[in-house]
Design a protein around this nucleic acid. Structure first.
Length: 1005
RNA sequence: GGGCGGUUAGCUCAGUUGGUUAGAGCGCCUGCCUUACAAGCAGGAUGUCGGGGGUUCGAGUCCCUCACUGCCCACCA
């Protein structure tokens, strides 16, 4: 089955050929393959006529049009396996993308994968370890070749999984962040930043992961509170301190990390601290610092405000090479920086007894030695926050090392190296400083980027305002190697686009490329523009570097992502994109170019941040806990559509999703329901054909017939409301009206990222209204025994039309099921290659009338009331009974005209109209009518009394409350008229119900 | 140390700018194999909206406070 071509397997619309139960496993893979093979969602390269994207809020998207909708897939790690977070993320993006596409917009969703420096390198290193080899045993080039081989072999796993989800991405534009094209762009970005003097190299304290043996950024460090100790250590004064008898001969410092004392180069006390005032300037003999049996190192006691007299002993040891604060003190006092650890955090002090010890072993030894020397004064319990490497879980070792940094709070220097390039930057006012961070702040502050939920605006601002320079170098092998060459002779740095042969400063040929690579987030931060071809043809003049894709699709419309990468990625994209894109000109519409504004330089106009997918008990999923739900597993069990719908129906902004399989089971049932509704329809279409009806499907929902979703759209995109013949039955008018309203609701919800509301509206419509009511009612009309019956013809046409439209409405949420049925409906000759290329139902597509809805509401209420009464009276399901009805003229007329509905749906055999109120124990009252079921059967008096008593109490409560309010002059005076009027009406109705209930209760005796 | 959320039916969650009797799905109870569907149909029960106070004609919704709970940021040895 699955190897058949979909168009051929699209079954004839005969109920007999649809299996009774819906089985997603036999259709989903087939359509997933079909969408990819047919390149249905590829967007052809834009031409000059592509209109540029107007800026506007999400509401703007409600208008139909041909604007591009562009969205970038957050690239998963190439080593990754799909998890529930991906699935939520992609479901949301796919719903929106399919929705926009079906609205006639050019919907471009660009997929890709991230080379994920650390993750990938670690994975391959692990593989090597299993083979008894290691990265260092291979050469750098051999190792990188090995990673590429791995990528070739396994790198497509995650994208293959994506295809299974039905993600409607443009595979022709798929990228990998280490592709040649993107590597060139990354290099170019680095070089320009260097030329603008925004990248610098320097020795600073960085977060060092001793396991990975690389620097990591602040963001890659998690702070964990742990119980630890504060050690008070005595440092003797070098001169013995015998200045005067009461003068101390030592100073006691407090530290949590005694092993770092080997790197101490000073002791700091606060200048206002009276205890130590006369020690300032003295030297101490650093204990345990003797190398090869030599004398102890002597270090000064100095005054620095950093020392807090309240904390510990008020004296702090200063280790400039291993603590950021100490580093700062060192800078202020020109202290030497003594790096005592190697890159694996083992003591690196040849000649010292601690040489070669791991940092924790060194701590133990040092504490023991201090104790033995009587220098360990006190050990106090102390909770400290330990920096933990996110990637490896090991304790981060702050370490002085040479790294590359991106200056984020600095204005770019004029480049000068670009050949006469005109600067398009900064034409807009309002950006005070033009630094990377300032632009990133302005972009959000000025509303060019909107966050949903909007509280992330604040979080973003807070972070961006306090941002530090970004350490962008990593001591890894897998990644974008920094295009800088160090000179062996003069030590100068040569940064160049093409591999240089000589030092740019002294001309020496003794140059070597930096061994560092760039932080993965540096390259992914460039994606919003590099994915569209930036920087373009490097040989072309600067002003024409606007690639066609960039011109057509930048800025992207939306970014959908999780809050966990808000700073890692979202913020970096805003920083880097605004910075670089301000220099890329805009088409001015008259064939020329003009500077780009900040609004046009932002990477996206909106950011939708979704929550976490948790397990059914709201626990965070983790491998350790073993509660990780594998999307592929759950999809195999319930079908992709059901899982997608589960996620969508719970995806309300700002709330985590507790993924509950029971719910997915419910949505599989929903899919099955629709499947069976289709079977019902097909069965009737068959009957109609057999009875000689001319069954022809209109193609009015189709917006594209030929090529894949291109930029061009057929002119007949808009569709006029379906015209209903005069004698169209009520239920058909009603279902069209409901479809219209629901279509409107769905559009409004999706525009606000309310996937839950949209999904629930469709669910309720499809099941609660179309299936539960409409399908039951059409059974009254479909009468194939009578040839050329008007009711039958109109109803069948409407039924088909509504069902087809409802499928389109549902298709962004359940693309597989709807595709399958839609193709089946057209019996192998569909008007488009996919339902995804048809028009999305709009409220204005269908005739709608409030009167129709009100009429059906009344009939539904009547039917429901009769059903309840029958149940209460224990009328056997199959037995029809007469009813008595007391009501106003409108309801009576309505009931008279639709007695057949009551017969079918409430098993009413006859209707007796009554002039009297009906209050017997076989009767029920609503504000619109009294109805009684005529059935001779002793009712359960006790149960009836209980029910009536309860009702009475409820009515009474309402009456008391309402009457009190209506008697309140302040309420009458201040509340708006429609509220008062509504309350009056409700009170009157409740009064009537109360009276009737009272009478009925009294009648029970 | 700062900052941000959450608390509504047994469970998971909705509840628009305050406005007439607070909803959904699942679960639960009862009755039905009614030829699209038992993955179904019909009916039913279930809430002092975390506690307290305030503003208001009117509060699940706004303000204060307390409790519990989750998260983010932060260079105090």
């Amino acid at each position: 089955m699955s190897d058949e071509k979909p168009t051929e397997s699209a079954i004839d619309s005969s109920a007999g050929s649809l299996p009774k139960a819906y089985d997603p496993s036999i259709i989903e893979q087939r359509w997933a393959d079909y969408w990819v093979q047919e390149r249905l969602f590829d967007v052809p390269p834009p031409n000059e006529r592509v209109p540029s994207r107007p800026t506007g809020g999400p509401r703007e998207a409600l208008k139909e049009g041909v604007n591009p909708f562009t969205i970038l897939l957050p690239p998963p790690n190439v080593t990754g396996r799909l998890h529930m977070g991906h699935m939520l993320n992609q479901t949301e993006m796919d719903i929106l993308t399919r929705w926009h596409r079906m609205r006639g917009e050019t919907a471009l969703w660009v997929p890709g994968t991230d080379h994920a420096g650390i993750a990938t390198q670690t994975m391959v290193e692990r593989q090597l370890a299993e083979e008894g080899s290691s990265r260092k045993q291979l050469s750098r080039d051999a190792f990188i070749a090995r990673v590429w081989k791995w990528k070739q072999q396994y790198g497509s796993a995650i994208t293959e999984q994506m295809k299974r989800l039905g993600a409607s991405v443009d595979w022709s534009r798929e990228y990998f962040t280490m592709d040649d094209r993107l590597s060139i762009a990354v290099k170019e970005a680095f070089i320009r930043l260097w030329e603008q003097d925004l990248i610098y190299r320097g020795a600073y304290i960085v977060n060092w992961d001793p396991q990975l043996q690389t620097a990591v950024s602040d963001l890659e460090v998690e702070n964990e509170e742990r119980a630890g100790h504060l050690y008070h250590i005595r440092y003797p004064l070098a001169d013995g301190g015998a200045l005067s008898p009461d003068s101390p001969d030592s100073i006691v410092v407090a530290t949590t990390r005694p092993e770092t004392m080997l790197g101490d180069t000073a002791i700091a006390v606060n200048p206002i601290d009276e205890r130590y005032k006369n020690l300032i300037g003295k030297l101490v003999a650093l204990p345990l610092s003797s190398v090869s049996g030599g004398p102890a190192r002597e270090i000064p006691i100095l005054a620095d405000d950093w020392a807090n007299p309240e904390f510990g002993t008020g004296a702090v040891k200063v280790t400039p090479a291993h603590d950021p604060n100490d580093f700062a003190i060192g800078q202020r006092h020109s202290l030497p920086q003594l790096n005592i650890f190697d890159e694996t955090a083992h003591v690196n002090l040849p000649g010292s007894p601690y040489h070669g010890l791991d940092r924790f072993a060194a701590r133990k030894r040092i504490l023991a030695d201090l104790e033995a020397a009587g220098l360990l004064v006190a050990v106090k319990d102390h909770t400290l926050t330990l920096p933990i490497s996110q990637r490896t879980g090991v304790v981060i070792e702050p370490r002085l090392s040479m790294q590359w940094f991106l200056a984020v709070n600095k204005s770019p220097a004029k480049t000068g190296t670009e050949s006469g390039a005109p600067s398009f930057r900064g034409a807009e006012g309002g950006v005070p400083q033009n630094s990377i961070a300032a632009n990133a702040i302005a972009a959000v502050r000025d509303g060019h980027i909107r966050f949903t939920p909007d509280n992330y605006t604040k979080i973003y601002n807070q972070w961006m305002t306090n941002i530090h320079d970004w350490c962008i170098s990593r001591q890894l092998w897998w990644g974008h190697r920094i295009p800088a060459w160090h000179c062996g002779k003069c030590a100068a740095i040569t940064v160049a686009r093409d591999t240089p042969t000589a030092c740019g400063t002294c001309g020496s040929a003794d140059i070597e490329q930096s061994t560092d690579v760039l932080d993965t987030w540096f390259s992914s931060g460039l994606l919003p523009f590099t994915a569209f071809g930036w920087p373009g043809d490097p040989l072309a003049p600067e002003t024409t570097k606007l690639t066609a894709d960039l011109a057509a699709f930048y800025p992207t419309s939306l970014l959908v992502t999780g809050f966990d990468i808000l700073f890692f990625w979202v913020a970096r994209m805003i920083m880097l994109s605004t910075h670089f894109m301000l220099d890329v000109p805009m088409r001015d519409g008259a064939g020329g170019l003009r500077p780009r504004t900040l609004a046009e330089a932002v990477p996206f106009n909106a950011v939708y941040i979704h929550a976490l997918v948790r397990d059914a008990n709201r626990e965070k999923m983790s491998k350790m806990k073993g509660n990780v739900i594998d999307p592929i597993e759950i999809i195999t069990k319930y079908g992709t559509d059901a899982v997608r719908f589960t996620l969508a129906s719970q995806a309300s902004p700002g709330t985590d999703i507790a993924f509950n399989e029971a719910r997915t089971e419910g949505y599989r049932a929903f899919a099955n329901k629709i499947w069976n509704a289709a079977r019902f329809l097909f069965m009737n279409l068959d009957r109609a054909r057999e009875a000689g009806y001319n069954v022809k499907l209109s193609h009015n929902g189709v917006i594209s017939t030929g090529a894949a979703g291109g930029v061009e759209r057929p002119p007949n995109f808009s569709s006029a409301p379906t015209e209903l013949p005069d004698h169209t039955p009520l239920e058909t008018r009603w279902i069209f009206a409901r479809l219209s309203l629901v279509s409107g609701e769905v559009a409004r919800s999706l525009a606000d990222y309310r996937f839950d509301e949209a999904a629930n509206a469709i669910y309720q419509f499809f099941w609660g209204e179309f299936c539960d009511w409409y399908l039951e009612l059409v059974k009254l009309r479909l009468n194939f025994d009578i040839p050329n019956n008007d009711d039958t013809a109109i109803t069948l046409a409407s039924l088909t039309s509504v069902f087809e439209a409802a499928l389109r409405l549902l298709s962004p949420f359940m693309p597989f099921l709807t595709e399958e049925i839609w193709h089946a409906l057209y019996a192998g000759t569909p008007p488009a290659k996919s339902i995804a290329l048809t028009r999305y139902p709009q409220a204005s597509d269908f005739p709608s009338s409030e009167l129709t809805i009100a009429a059906m509401d009344t009939l539904q209420e009547l039917i429901t009331t009769i059903r309840a009464l029958r149940k209460e009276l224990s009328v056997p399901e199959k037995e029809a009974t007469p009813i008595a009805l007391h009501a106003g003229a409108r309801v009576l007329a309505l009931t008279g005209a639709h007695a057949d509905m009551l017969g079918r749906l409430a098993r009413v055999s006859a209707i007796e109209f009554s002039n009297e109120q009906l209050t017997g124990n076989n009767a029920r009252s609503t504000p619109n009518f009294d109805v009684a079921v005529v059935y001779e059967r002793q009712i359960d008096v006790a149960a009836e009394r209980e029910r009536l008593t309860k009702d009475l109490a409820r009515h009474e409560k309402v009456l008391t409350a309402n009457e009190a309010r209506l008697a309140d002059e302040k309420f009458i005076g201040k509340a708006p008229a429609h509220i008062v009027e509504g309350l009056r009406k409700q009170t009157a109705e409740t009064r009537t119900l109360y009276d009737k209930t009272k009478t009925a209760l009294d009648a029970l005796g």
